[in-house]
Amino acid sequence: MKETILFDEGYQWIMFGRDPDKPEGIIDTNQFMIKDGNRNVLLDPGGIEIFSSMLACVTRYADPSEISDIFASHQDPDIISSLGLWDRAVPHAKLHAPWLWEGFIRHFGCENIQYCGISDEGGEIELNHTRLQFIPAHYLHASGNYHVYDPEAKILMSGDVGAALEPEGAPMFVEDFDQHVQKMILFHQRWMPSNRAKNDWIRRVRKLNIEIMAPQHGRLFKGDDVKRFLDWFEALEVGTGIKNTARSYA
C-alpha cells in the first residue's frame, strides 16, 4: 500500500492507498492516519479486505497500543467493515462515528472499542498539537455523515465528496482539474442525493481555510483546486438517479 505524508510539522498526516494487494472488483480507497505523539487517529480505516495492508502500514508509524482513536465518516463497508478486526488490534481505542449509525456499524463487530456517537451538529477531539473538527456532511452521501477538518494542517478529509472513479495506480493529487472533472461527475450525481444538503455543506466549507481536500476515493485536491472543486460542485445537479428511474418507467 502506498504511503504519502500530507503534513509534517510537529505531527503528521499520512495517507495510505493504491493497495496492490487489494482483491479485484473492490473500489480503491484512501485511508488516513494522524500521528501526534501518543494520540494516533485512523480516519476511515477501510474494509476487511485491506485490513492486513492497513495494519502493517499503520504499525510502521505507531505501536497498535498507541492508536487512540478511529473515525468513521459513515457506515459504508469500504469505510469501516474492518471494525471487527480493529476491535482485536486496538481494543482500547475510541470510535468516533455518526450517532445515527451506531446500531448499524456495530454489526461489523465492536465488543471492545468504545463507540462515541457524533451528534448531528458535529464535534471535536483534542490531540496534542491540534483539535480535530467533525464537520457535518449529512446526506453527502449518507444520512449521518461527517468530514474531518484540521485547522492546523489545513486539511479537510472530505469522505465521498470529491471522490473520483479512477483506474488503478492513479496519481495522489489532481494535476489537471478540468480533465479530472470527467472522473467525478457520475460519482457525485449518482451517489449524492440532495442539492440542498450539498449547498449547505459548500456554504460552511467555504469558510474553512483549506490547503488540501482529501476524499476517500481518487485524487486529493491542493491549493486553488480546492476552490475549483467547490465551484464545480456548487454548479452540479445531484440526485440524478431519480430522473433516470422516471425515464425508464415512464
Binding site: S53, L55, D63, P64, L85
Partner: peptide
C-alpha cells in the same frame, strides 16, 4: 482474523514492531 493478522505481520516485514503484531 488470525490469517489477516499473520498477513499483516508478513507485510510489515523486518520492523521493530513486528514482534507486537506477531504476539497479537
Amino acid at each position: 482474523a488470525s490469517a489477516r493478522f499473520v498477513r499483516a505481520t508478513e507485510l510489515l516485514g523486518d520492523n521493530e514492531r513486528t514482534k507486537v503484531l506477531s504476539e497479537k
